[in-house]
């Protein structure tokens, strides 16, 4: 019974909602609305469950006197203070954030917001460091990703088109130098021709490439965003949603039962 009842509820709810979508007449017409109301009520209770498990988790840590217990004490006491003050302000003024100079608003504005914003702003440092380490021309795919990233990063900021010609110029000069060095070290004549040819092409391409980027970089960045990026995204989304539909059918039919564990 422990499994059968939840499975039956899932099957009936899922089946009725699908029927309600295709038959918008009574008795099915109002079903979706009613289910939505229930869903809102259940969602409210999930918040309570979340609070319950969070508090229990930290309470156990305090009881066991674990190493991180002081942090758990801070968490629980902050939770109690904020909750108590919120209820007090809510009852007294009809709004947890009233009056404008209240403790809760002060706490939110000067503690919670800076803490959360600081955590997120650290990402700028990590991303810069990670981009430097990860964007290496290790193969064709990595090189394509590298080029696209460069185009979008410079093409989407003001003055990016003015910096881009220098970057492309330096890149092509370096490519020419590397090609010459490679060509010198090769023994076969055809290999020498390929590498010296590449060096010549790189030098010739400097000015046209720089000119093209100076006048077309924002458009190129838009093209990357609107064509390859969107194409890949659409493909991904279609795949994700097909997977979601398949998973929903499996759950409704009771084939997928991991949510019961």
């Amino acid at each position: 019974m422990k499994k059968e009842v939840p499975l039956a509820i899932t099957f009936i709810s899922g089946f009725l909602l699908i029927v309600a979508l295709f038959i918008p007449h009574e008795p099915f017409g109002s079903l979706q609305e009613r289910f939505n109301d229930w869903y809102i009520i259940v969602s409210g209770f999930t918040l309570i469950l979340g609070v319950d498990s969070l508090i229990l988790y930290h309470w156990r840590k305090i009881k066991r006197k674990e190493k991180e217990a002081p942090y758990s004490i801070i968490l629980i006491s902050t939770f109690v203070i904020v909750l108590a003050w919120g209820i007090y302000s809510g009852v007294k003024y009809g709004n947890p954030f009233a009056p404008a100079s209240s403790f809760l608003r002060y706490f939110y504005t000067y503690m919670f917001v800076p803490l959360q914003a600081t955590m997120f702003s650290l990402l700028a440092f990590f991303i810069a460091s990670a981009a430097y380490r990860a964007f290496r021309a290790r193969g064709l795919n990595a090189t394509l990703l590298l080029i696209s990233a460069g185009i979008v990063m410079l093409g989407r900021v003001p003055k990016g088109e003015e910096a881009a010609p220098y970057f492309i110029g330096i890149t092509l000069i370096l490519l020419a130098i590397v090609s010459v060095l490679e060509g010198v070290s090769r023994v076969e004549v055809y290999e020498k021709i390929i590498f010296f040819g590449l060096a010549v092409v790189s030098i010739i391409a400097i000015f046209p490439a720089a000119w093209f980027l100076k006048f077309n970089l924002p458009r190129l960045a838009d093209w990357v965003m609107n064509v390859p990026q969107l194409g890949a995204k659409r493909g991904l989304f279609i795949g994700i949603w097909l997977g979601a539909i398949a998973m929903a059918i499996r759950i409704i039919l009771g084939i997928e039962r991991t949510y019961l564990k």
Partner: peptide, 28 residues
């Protein structure tokens, strides 16, 4: 903020370029 973002993007692209020069030279 856009000026800061522009400068950061240029720094990142320059770092990526420098990193790749080092990487390709070392590979060679």
């Amino acid at each position: 903020g856009m000026t800061a973002q522009t400068i950061i993007h240029i720094i990142i692209v320059a770092l990526i370029l420098i990193g790749n020069i080092g990487y390709l030279a070392m590979r060679r």
